[in-house]
């Protein structure tokens, strides 16, 4: 609520182009998955989605820098970003819920324990364990070995926690008006993000080549890649956002009291960090 003026853009072509681009991308993806062709359509769709996002955000940046936005508009963006992150939290909550359900209920029941232990009739030889090394049906090959959480996963945890700290320093620098501080610490954050993604890539390679942890390796491999995979995708998105923020910092887009784009990127990065803590605890440690 304010007595100021609220900016209502009159028309925009990005939403409709974005819808079409997303539709193209989905059709291409479906064709690749179902018919094993359509990679050009999928790629074109993906590029179109990225292009539309780029143009759309460019318009928003221009309007913001042109002084069209008032405090009320700023609150709309804050609300929008906050609720968007909440929706992301619920997306991961579904995956964590699946993990807990499998570990707490489904596997013990298949082993004959608990209220629905009658499920053990299916595979009487089956013994529940976590990580699940031998899936109930012998046709499904389980993983050969699992990761120690105290090697690469711990390193990655430290990297991501450190990146949240460096990003906070960068944000404080921005609030104090020290653009060089912001630039340097944001750059450090980006380096940490890239290290995380690289290490995660190494871990995936190890998983497939040396540990036999694959998507097909029973429920352990499936949940492992579901959770770490979507988290990794979010890290890549977050790192991309941070890279854009670095460019905007270099161009002097932000002032100490007007930089919600930067702040939203921080919110998103902290969210990705918190999800990792959950992953580290429940996918790797326990």
């Amino acid at each position: 609520m304010s007595g100021g003026s609220y900016y209502v853009p009159s028309t925009s072509k990005w939403p409709i182009l974005g819808s079409l681009a997303l539709g193209l991308m989905m059709i291409g993806t479906g064709m690749v998955l179902v018919h094993d062709r359509g990679t050009p359509i999928m790629t074109l769709g993906l590029l179109a989605v990225l292009a539309v996002m780029g143009f759309w955000f460019r318009d928003v940046v221009k309007e913001s820098r042109g002084g069209l936005y008032d405090a009320q508009m700023d609150r709309s963006f804050r609300q929008g970003m906050g609720w968007f992150i909440f929706s992301e939290v619920m997306f991961f909550a579904a995956f964590f819920g699946a993990l807990f359900y499998i570990r707490t209920f489904a596997l013990p029941w298949l082993d004959g324990e608990g209220a629905k232990g009658v499920a053990a009739l299916l595979w009487p030889e089956f013994t529940a364990s976590w990580p699940l090394m031998s899936p109930p049906d012998t046709a499904v090959a389980g993983p050969r070995d699992t990761f120690s959480p105290w090697q690469l996963p711990l390193v990655n945890t430290l990297i991501l926690v450190a990146s949240s700290i460096t990003l906070t320093v960068a944000h404080e620098g921005l609030k104090e008006g020290h653009r060089d501080t912001t630039r340097n610490w944001l750059f450090a954050t980006l380096l940490l993000a890239i290290s995380f993604i690289t290490i995660q890539g190494v871990e995936y390679y190890e998983a497939y080549v040396h540990y036999g942890i694959t998507l097909e390796a029973g429920i352990y491999g499936a949940t492992f890649f579901l959770l770490t995979g979507f988290h990794g995708a979010h890290v890549i998105i977050g790192a991309t956002i941070l890279a854009v923020m670095l460019v905007r910092v270099l161009r002097g887009h932000f002032s100490s009291d007007n930089h919600f784009g930067f702040e939203a990127a921080c919110w998103y990065w902290h969210f990705v960090d918190v999800v990792w803590i959950g992953l580290f605890l429940f996918v790797y440690v326990f």
Binding site: A98, A106, L132, P136, L215
Partner: peptide, 21 residues
């Protein structure tokens, strides 16, 4: 989508998943 296209076993008890999930 992953069960259909990528060979995961989220909803297939043979791999330790569960259709009730």
């Amino acid at each position: 989508l992953m069960d259909i296209n990528f060979g995961t076993h989220f909803f297939n008890a043979a791999g330790g998943g569960d259709p009730v999930l």
